[in-house]
Amino acid sequence: MNPLGLYQPGSSPLHRLGVGWKLLALLVLASGTFVLSSPVWLGVVVAAVALGFVVARIPLRRCWAAARGVLVIAAFLFLVQWWLIGLDQATVVGLRVIATLAAATLFTLTTRIDAIVAMLERRLAPLRRFGVRPGDVALLVGLMFQAVTTLTRIAGEVREAQRARGAERSVVAFAVPLLVRTVRHADELGEALAARGMGDR
């Protein structure tokens, strides 16, 4: 599973809605959950986000993957809060986390990175006179997604190799090749970006 809920191609109203509007909705929703403190209303928000997945026609398999990720984090926070503060407050926090994370996942599932990047470049353009280079900030978004997939893949491959040699339990046998390959990947990535004219603009 991709932790960031990679783009799921589609033509639903949610896919076609402008990135700016979606991002605004996400922010409003996230802050809204902090204003609301009634579990019932928070439940309504969660249901509304769930409805969003239906409207966007996200395949069940991906819904399930997203739900699993969100629920694990929410459950962890719920248990910690329950222990620290009490059941009522923990329920509220749990629902807030579910609503926000699920909405963020829905956002990434229905929005192409390219569109996010283009939007950021437009919005950040006025900051140019303060020395912010919008192109660089935007590239960061794409590379962040790439980094997550690459690290997941490298970690998987290292773990496999480790298992093949019967060294599952060794932290060193995991950490050293992971580090070496990550550094090598970073080198190659930098070189490839330079070749694609990244430092030139």
């Binding site: 783009y7 390219d114 794409g142 790439q146 690459t150 490839a192």
Partner: peptide
């Protein structure tokens, strides 16, 4: 310039986005 390892050359999550990049 084409390198050996495509994984370090592809910087965007989908094929179309990478070419458009």
């Amino acid at each position: 310039f084409l390198f050996t390892n495509p994984d370090s050359q592809i910087v965007m999550p989908t094929a179309g986005e990478d070419v458009a990049f």
